[in-house]
């Protein structure tokens, strides 16, 4: 179990009508990239949300285990929600709040709409960095360094998302995700909406950021080419087959 950041076994998620996700099994290790691939609509983003403790549908997670070995040892987080209804889901969200943003961070797809339009990029980075479990030292220097690493000028920190281009927004989203120096990054199709050159550059940048800082990366994508080039381990998510409601 040494170096293992995330471990999920046999996860099954369902709504009242149908099974949305069935039999997901994966693990992410320190400094390694695990890719979760599958066609659109298979439930990749849903899986990401559930792995971060946010199960927003009923009955939600009905089977499986979720462990963050480095963060909470052998504790099975899904124990809180399996068959526990809305109260269990709220409890899971509450208890995993300290985990999100600090131990595990999230890099979204379509970053232009995923950034707060009323906050400057610097403020969003600062808020993310404040959740760090490790001391960041001089905040300004830390944020400057991060911006430079993702290929943005430090001056961008005073800009609002609407003042940035799509590629700049995506890089900014990566910078925000890395601000808290997380142990694990879950990147949900970070290349979506970018041109082919930027797509490759952004994904490679993300992998470089994670591996160089010793973080694990769960890369969610449906782009097989990129995934097979950068991932150490690939998990394919098929369309769920399960019993009807």
């Amino acid at each position: 179990m040494s170096g293992c950041l995330l471990q999920v076994e046999g996860m099954m998620v369902r709504s009242r009508r149908r099974v949305l996700l069935n039999g997901l099994r994966l693990s992410v290790d320190t400094g390694r990239v695990t890719a979760l691939v599958g066609p659109s609509g298979v439930g990749k983003s849903l899986a990401a949300r559930c792995l971060m403790g946010l199960v927003d549908l009923s009955p939600g997670v009905v089977r499986g285990t979720l462990r963050y070995p480095e963060f909470s040892g052998e504790r099975d987080w899904f124990e809180l929600v399996r068959g526990k209804g809305g109260r269990g889901r709220r409890r899971l969200a509450r208890l995993t709040a300290s985990l999100r943003g600090a131990y595990v961070s999230y890099a979204p797809q379509g970053a232009a709409s995923a950034l707060n339009p009323a906050r400057t990029l610097g403020r969003q980075m600062e808020l993310a960095a404040q959740r760090s479990r490790r001391p960041v030292g001089d905040m300004t220097a830390h944020l400057c360094r991060l911006l430079q690493r993702v290929g943005l000028e430090p001056s961008v920190s005073g800009a609002f998302p609407s003042e940035l281009s799509g590629g700049q927004c995506q890089r900014a989203a990566l910078a925000i995700a890395m601000s808290s120096m997380p142990r694990l990054v879950i990147a949900d199709e970070p290349e979506t909406g970018l041109d082919p050159v930027s797509r490759r550059a952004v994904t490679e940048l993300l992998v470089e950021l994670c591996t160089s800082s010793g973080s694990g990366l769960l890369l969610i994508s449906h782009n097989q080419d990129i995934v097979h080039r950068v991932a150490h381990h690939v998990v394919e998510l098929p369309f769920p087959v399960g019993e009807a409601a």
């Binding site: 009323a118 906050r119 400057t120 990029l121 610097g122 403020r123 600062e126 905040m139 300004t140 944020l143 400057c144 911006l147 943005l152 000028e153 430090p154 001056s155 961008v156 920190s157 005073g158 800009a159 609002f160 003042e163 940035l164 281009s165």
Partner: peptide, 22 residues
Amino acid sequence: FVAWHSRRAPSLVSRQSTTRVA
């Protein structure tokens, strides 16, 4: 106040260069 609060970011360099970047 909200507009001022939103701008109250750790602007690492001046706003003038921000617009140039954008």
